[in-house]
C-alpha cells in the first residue's frame, strides 16, 4: 500500500524536487498531475495572507484524505504540502502531486485531495489589506462544499 507524503510547513516548497522525490526509481508511473495553489493579490487590494492551522490535526486530516485518495483511485504516489504563516501574493500556499499508471486517476486523485483539503483540513486564511488595515478572515464558500460533495 502506498503511503502519502504529508507536510505542513512555513517554508516554500520546490515543485520539481517534490515530483522527483515521488517518481525516483519508479517505472510503473505513467502519469503525474500536480496542483499548486498560490496567493492572489486581489487586484492590488491584498498585501498578504495569514494562514493559521491546527497543529497535529492538520497533518492527521491531510493524511486521512491522502489515504482515501490512494485507495479510491489506486494511486502509486501522493504528496500534499500545505504552508502556514504569512504568505505574500505570488507565493505558493499548497501543493498536491498525484501519481498513477494512467492520467485519469492522477487528475481525479489530485482533484479529490484538493476538494477535501479545502473543506476538512483545519486551515484558516486571514487577509491583510494593502492599505495596512486589519483584514478579515476569509469566509468558507458553499461552492467548496458542492465541489467536495460531487465525490460522494
Amino acid at each position: 500500500m502506498t503511503a502519502p507524503t504529508i507536510r505542513v510547513q512555513s517554508t516554500d516548497f520546490d515543485l520539481q524536487a517534490e515530483i522527483s522525490a515521488l517518481t525516483a526509481g519508479r517505472k510503473n508511473i505513467g502519469a503525474v498531475v500536480t496542483f499548486t495553489g498560490l496567493c492572489r493579490d486581489e487586484q492590488g487590494a491584498l498585501s498578504a495572507l495569514e494562514l493559521e492551522h491546527y497543529p497535529g490535526m492538520a497533518e492527521a486530516e491531510m493524511l486521512r484524505i491522502g489515504e482515501l485518495a490512494i485507495d479510491r483511485f489506486s494511486l502509486l504516489g501522493l504528496t500534499a504540502i500545505h504552508r502556514f504563516g504569512k504568505i505574500m501574493p505570488g507565493e505558493n500556499i499548497v501543493l498536491v502531486i498525484a501519481a498513477a499508471p494512467h492520467r485519469q486517476a492522477a487528475f481525479d486523485g489530485a482533484n479529490f485531495v484538493m476538494d477535501f483539503l479545502k473543506t476538512s483540513a483545519p486551515f484558516w486564511k486571514k487577509e491583510h489589506a494593502a492599505d495596512g488595515a486589519q483584514g478579515d478572515w476569509i469566509a468558507a464558500k458553499d461552492a467548496d462544499d458542492t465541489a467536495r460533495d460531487r465525490w460522494r
Partner: peptide, 10 residues
C-alpha cells in the same frame, strides 16, 4: 476539544 470556524485552507 477544538472549536473553530469552517475551514478555508487550500
Amino acid at each position: 476539544i477544538g472549536i473553530f470556524p469552517p475551514m478555508t485552507g487550500g
